[in-house]
Amino acid sequence: MHHFSRYRHGADHPLTRLDPRLKLFSALALLSMVISCKGFAFPLLAAVMCGGLCIGMGVPLRLLMLRFAEPLFIAVMVVLLKLFFVGEVPLFSVHVLGLDIIGHREGLVDGLRIAVRISGAVSLVALLGFSTSFTDLMGALAWFRVPRTIIEIAMFAWRYLFVLLEDAQVVYHAQKNRLGYAGYRRGLRSFGTLAGALVIKAFDNSQNITTAMVQRGYDGTMPLMRHRPFRPGEVIFSLLFVLTMGIIWRM
């Protein structure tokens, strides 16, 4: 639940200092290549490259593993589903409880292809997340003409996410210490109370925020951070990178 933070990793790393618009553009271009790739090599290359860069930026290995846990679990499930349910050519068979369970060759290949694609795509987005602050990313999305309302809501959500998480933790521990989660029925009731308390807090906070913001001149739209001008070196580097990856993808 808490394997993310509001802080960037590797503040001195060149990738962290790169213009967020260029980072987003490159990441989306590369992501499109990864998910449209039919082979194994390109997604694997993306996974290794991005994973390596994450470690190079000083992202703790444990955090990286936690970030990958869910997608890898899903990847394993997809491989197993494909292995046992898709294909004609038997690869192996296992006799369990009087049943013959057959693994298929085509299913395994298909499943592994999807698993590799998941690894590549997740590494790429993880690298983007680790190297870019949320406000930078929102600024870049606004530059790409994502509707302003979505950006504003995301900014509000991000600002108060950590406050609500802390509140939730406090309430959860208080409930747990009072045996609020002893048994399913009590646990469920406690969880409902916790979630309801969060909704009430959200309502109250939204009123307070609005009052404070109106006093500071809020008229329904929030100002966003201005971007510095593009640096020619960074633009050329990003374009060359995407071009190179495109050539590798076509091979």
Partner: peptide
């Protein structure tokens, strides 16, 4: 004017709720 902050905070609540582990018997 309070609608946007409210919806933003609701998004945060949905985020937090969907991060909460809930035991499935």
């Amino acid at each position: 004017l309070a609608m946007k902050p409210l919806v933003g905070l609701m998004a945060a609540v949905v985020f937090v709720i969907s991060c909460m582990p809930i035991p499935v018997p």
